[in-house]
Nucleic acid binder design. Structure first.
Length: 404
RNA sequence: GGAGGGGUGUCCGAGUGGCCAAAGGAAGCAGACUGUAAAUCUGCCGGCGAAACGCCUACGGGGGUUCGAAUCCUCCCCCCUCCA
């Protein structure tokens, strides 16, 4: 590939490239570029949102460039108290190592980790003196820091901003200095931080990194960005069935975006997809199933993905029982006298966190045993071996009777 | 340092002495429908309990006033705004 072609290939779908000429110049040197990617040491559960930039990193890697992961263990150990509602728990060194390990494993689904450089930013911040930190801080101004949209809004809304938070962008920027990054990539929410990186690199006499950002993947709710804390995510290590099912639950309106960010559809291809959906040429359900199957296949292989799809059709379209389900073992004592209380059975199966919740489910007609709805919350039941308890549309368990 | 405002359920947010397990919204769950765990509509949505207009827990934390407090007093912790 010529440098021009590489530029084209690498920036496909990017929102910001600051700036393309610099990247082209770097590519023309022919040397492997150093591509920085910051990893959060507190979130070892990678999800499809992370996969968007990770897939871009793969393109860089495939072209022979060097991926430099930076694990923010230094900052992770300080913790940021300003998170208002949820104070982030401080991480110990062991936790961070463990997280980094799982992180690497998960990234391994998308990249050749053995060819990546991995750094902990405590490598350089651990040595840094207070004086050094002040020098770093002197290179930036409060006014510029508060330009950041996030801070700006918080100021307007009266939401607290800690001093530490204002230091974060600088710390992150200095990471770029430490690893001599050529390019830093991430989500659009990182644009400001990345740009601070350019300024700080200049301040330390380095050529500024090229900054590239991609859209944030919207979560399953179709509203907020995908994140673990919002619970609207698909983890990349989730089993095929879960992954497929979760993807089938996205609002129809989200499909084009998912095709674009997860399947690398170009604008033209996305437009074509929209057209086919609008004309009725392609059924939305079919489009979503293909999306779900393709994504699932990327992490679990084509066969597992096809199975997940078949299973989904079976349970939700044909309303049949899933081929596999957890078991609940009942002992003779559980069934003593007149059987087991239906509510107790539900909580035993783990389908409700409290008796009250289980009662509600029964009242709402969500519970069935062996295909027969149990509508009386005070009912006592005496299930046979192998009978299936179903709660709602998607929770199933097979009853097993223990010997004696 | 001074003055003022505020901390409510998973989240946002009303509530200023009993009618408050606490309006409303979001999320979540369930039912109907369907093309799916989409969309839409309806219901539920602290716990315990056979049930109760029953008990327990809950409105930043402690103490107090009162027959009775999310609501009043007091001390403490935390946050915001303006001034310096």
């Amino acid at each position: 590939m010529t440098p021009e072609q590489q530029l084209e290939h690498l920036s496909q779908g990017a929102v910001d490239v600051v700036n393309p000429e610099e990247l082209l110049a770097k590519l023309r040197t022919g040397r492997p570029l150093r591509i920085k990617y910051g990893a959060d040491p507190s979130a070892p559960d990678l999800h499809l949102g992370h996969s968007v930039p990770l897939r871009r990193l793969r393109r860089f890697q495939d072209l022979g460039h060097t991926i430099v992961f930076i694990i923010g263990d230094f900052t992770g150990r300080i913790g940021d108290p300003s998170g208002r509602s949820k104070t982030r728990p401080l991480l110990t060194e062991e936790q961070i190592r463990a997280n980094a390990q799982t992180y690497a494993e998960q990234v391994g689904h998308l990249l050749d980790v053995s060819r990546c450089e991995i750094h902990y930013n405590s490598e350089w911040f651990g040595q840094m003196s207070a004086a050094d930190l002040l020098v770093l801080a002197s290179h930036y101004t409060i006014a510029r820091m508060l330009e950041r949209d996030d801070f700006h809004l918080r100021m307007l809304r009266g939401v607290p901003i800690s001093m530490l938070e204002t230091l974060y962008p600088l710390v992150q920027a200095y990471d770029s200095v430490a690893v001599r990054a050529d390019v830093e990539i991430g989500g659009t929410d990182q644009l400001f931080n990345f740009l601070v990186g350019r300024d700080i690199m200049r301040a330390y006499g380095q050529e500024p990194q090229v900054v590239m950002t991609w859209p944030l993947l919207v979560g399953l709710d179709g509203e907020e960005k995908m994140s673990k804390s919002l619970g609207n995510y698909v983890g990349i290590t989730e089993p095929p069935g879960e992954m497929f099912g979760k993807l089938m639950s996205i609002p129809d309106s989200l499909m084009p975006e998912y095709y674009r960010l997860l399947l690398d559809y170009t604008e033209e291809e996305v437009a074509h997809l929209r057209a086919r959906l609008a004309s009725g040429d392609l059924h939305p359900r079919e489009a979503k199933a293909r999306l779900a199957q393709t994504v699932t296949a990327e992490y679990h292989g084509a066969q597992a993905a096809a199975q997940a799809r078949a299973e989904f059709d079976r349970v939700f379209s044909a309303r049949e029982l899933p081929s596999e389900m957890p078991e609940v073992v009942l002992t003779p004592q559980d069934l003593c006298n007149d059987g087991i209380w239906i509510v107790a059975l539900i909580t035993r199966a783990g389908f409700a966190p409290s008796n009250s919740e289980a009662r509600r489910l029964v009242r709402q007609g969500a519970v069935s045993l062996g295909g027969t709805t149990v509508g009386d919350e005070n009912a006592r039941v005496r299930p046979e071996e192998g009978v299936v308890l179903q709660v709602g549309k998607r929770r199933f368990a097979r009853i097993r009777l223990a010997g004696g």
